[in-house]
Simulated scan of single mutants.
Amino acid sequence: MSNNNIFMKSGFVRAPLQNGVGRYVCQLQRIVLKFCKTHGGSRGIREFIEQDMVEFAKENPGVVMYLKPRRHRSPVIVAEYLNGDRVWMNMHNKTHSEITKWIELLRTQQGDVSSTRLRKYQYTDHPSIQGPWTPWTFKNPELNTVKFPDAKLGSNDRLPMSATEQLRLMFERQKLSESDRELPTAE
Rank of each mutant, 00 (worst) to 15 (best):
Q51D: 08
Q109V: 05
K58N: 11
T100K: 12
R46W: 04
W102A: 06
S128G: 03
A79T: 01
L167E: 05
L67A: 00
R158T: 03
L167S: 08
E59L: 09
I45G: 00
N156M: 13
K152P: 03
S42P: 01
G40M: 07
L143M: 13
V113R: 06
M161Q: 14
V54H: 07
M91A: 08
T134W: 02
N140Q: 10
H96V: 01
G40F: 12
Q51I: 09
I77V: 09
V54D: 08
L169K: 14
E80G: 01
L82W: 10
D112Y: 06
L118K: 14
G131F: 02
M53G: 00
S97H: 13
V63Q: 05
Q130T: 08
M89Q: 11
P132V: 10
L143E: 12
D157L: 15
V78R: 07
K147V: 15
M65H: 14
T100Q: 12
A151G: 10
K94Q: 12
R46Q: 06
R73S: 06
R119P: 02
H92G: 05
K147C: 15
I129R: 15
A79G: 04
K147F: 12
D52L: 04
N140E: 08
W88V: 07
S115V: 02
P69R: 01
R158E: 07
L167R: 14
R168D: 10
